[in-house]
Design a protein around this nucleic acid. Structure first.
Length: 438
RNA sequence: GGACGGGUGGGUGAGUGGCUAAAACCAGCAGACUGUAAAUCUGCCGCUCCUUGCGGGCUACGAAGGUUCGAAUCCUUCCCCGUCCA
């Protein structure tokens, strides 16, 4: 808390400082001098779903080129879960693009708004998060966000900074700037109303309070996923009500999850977490439907549209096997989060385990002490290879369990733990464990 | 405040006294087929015990009580949600 205020004060000390800083950067680092507007726009438009309104973004870019003042571009994220997944990185990557073009990237952590809960796309009121959860999540978020954004060039803000201080009077005034009918236009609310699902009044406040973020930040551009469009438009309108020009809006498509159907999300369990180990990440990418890989190329790699088109051409002409194209994709993404060597290793391991049907090179090992023989079922549960004994029994009956590379058929099998040995256990397609008895 | 409707497994949703650990679908898991693709097919899909059997026990249909040999199903009270009226 204390640290946060300190850093904010430094940032807040204003345009002057920022301008001075940029003057220095301009003379020392050519990458920070602005590129021609068309070039910037082309780069910024890559993969974007919608720019509202595009002429305004262009005009803003032109103005910043002329005055040398970078645009203030922000992305607000509510720290509702402790981990980011690939879906979150789509829009983060876009923020990075603005950063690459020399503009000011503001990463806004919605520590206050997370306690209200974004009603977007949900069919019921979310349980509000506690302060502790929000703080813990915010911390892990930042560490992950900086795998993509340049920490030195990112302005990190928390919306409790201003929302926490709003008086009841200020909130009433804020609310007076928007109409109920407009609010109920949004599909989430209408649907919930139609279907007889509850809507709590505080949920109506979400777009308004986050609009106050845009007012406080005096942003020129706000980024978000397409599903955020309604919120972003409210932000723009409210900014105008407060006498600001009204930010431009750039939305990014939703990343489809591993099932190839629905949006990537943790609750649907079709996600790839950005902190997942290289092997898991690699395997998950390989499991997406082939058609989906092109979207992934576009949204979660740094390939240019031309490069992607070429690759696609090669696959459709038969010059490149779709699986190889997907292997490249997987390696590229893994490399971005873990580095090239672990990515290479993950690729090799994938080959070995799934193509050549061998056990992986490094199987996680677990030691257990010598003791009386134990039921395999019990052991599977103790080693976290199965959630319950019933499930473990089922796995064996279904032929999913292997001991030293040969299938176990007897659900009542015991494992001899009376003398020091090693076992290679497999439960299902993905779970391997080396068991060391000593 | 009143009238009416509703709350079922991870989700949707059937079930109005025993044949219901609860239809169907989705999700998930396993096997087959593959490129760990996808699609498809087959099986599984609360926990637990053993003599692994269409076996026993326990827990479960918003909550708590009650009626009954027997309750998701009937009764009472409470909590929650919606619609309409005020």
């Amino acid at each position: 808390m204390r640290m946060r205020e300190g850093s904010q004060r430094r940032i807040c000390s204003g345009r002057l400082l920022r301008r001075a800083l940029f003057a220095i950067l301009d003379t020392t680092m050519t990458s920070n001098s602005f590129k021609p507007v068309d070039e910037q726009l082309a780069y910024l438009k890559k993969g974007a779903a919608e720019i509202i309104p595009e002429p305004e973004l262009r005009a803003a870019l032109e103005k910043s080129l002329k005055t040398g003042v970078p645009l203030r571009v922000y992305l607000g994220v509510d720290p509702t879960a402790p981990d980011l997944h690939l879906g979150h990185t789509v829009v983060l990557r876009k923020l990075k693009h603005f950063q690459d073009m020399g503009h000011t990237a503001v990463f806004l952590i919605g520590d206050f708004s997370a306690m209200i809960g974004d009603p977007t796309g949900v069919s019921e009121t979310r349980p509000p998060l506690t302060r502790e959860q929000v703080d813990a999540n915010a911390k892990t978020y930042l560490a992950q966000v900086f795998k993509i954004l340049d920490p030195a060039k990112t302005e990190v803000r928390y919306n409790s900074e201003w929302l926490g201080k709003l008086s009841a009077e200020a909130i009433v005034r804020l609310c007076s700037h928007y109409r109920l009918a407009r609010m109920l236009e949004r599909e989430d609310f209408r649907k919930r109303l139609d279907e007889g699902h509850p809507i709590s009044v505080h949920e109506l406040l979400y777009p308004l309070l986050t609009a106050y973020d845009a007012v406080s930040l005096k942003s020129d551009v706000e980024l978000g996923a397409t599903e955020q469009k309604f919120n972003l438009l409210v932000h723009r309108e409210i900014q105008r009500e407060y006498g600001l020009p009204g930010q431009a809006i750039l939305t990014m498509p939703i990343l489809v999850g591993l099932d190839g159907q629905r949006k990537m999300s943790k609750s649907l369990n079709n996600y790839i977490g950005i902190t997942e180990p290289p092997a898991d990440m690699f395997g998950k990418i390989m499991s997406i439907p082939d058609d989906l890989m092109w979207l992934y190329y576009e949204l979660v790699t740094d390939r240019t549209p031309q490069q992607i088109a070429t690759l696609k051409q090669e696959v459709s002409s038969g010059a490149l096997h779709p699986m190889d194209a997907k292997m490249r994709l997987a390696e590229e993404i893994v490399s971005g989060f873990h580095g090239p060597d672990p990515a290479r290793k993950a690729a090799d391991n994938f080959q070995r385990v799934f193509r050549d049907r061998q056990s992986p090179t490094d199987v996680p090992a677990q030691k257990i002490p010598v003791g009386p023989p134990k039921k395999l079922i019990v052991l599977l549960v103790e080693l976290n290879l199965a959630p319950s004994k019933s499930e473990a029994e089922r796995l064996i009956k279904q032929g999913a369990v292997e001991l030293n590379e040969s299938r176990v058929d007897d659900p009542r099998a015991d494992l001899d733990l009376t003398k020091p040995v090693q076992f290679l256990l497999r439960a299902g397609k993905k779970k391997f464990l080396r068991l060391i008895v000593e």
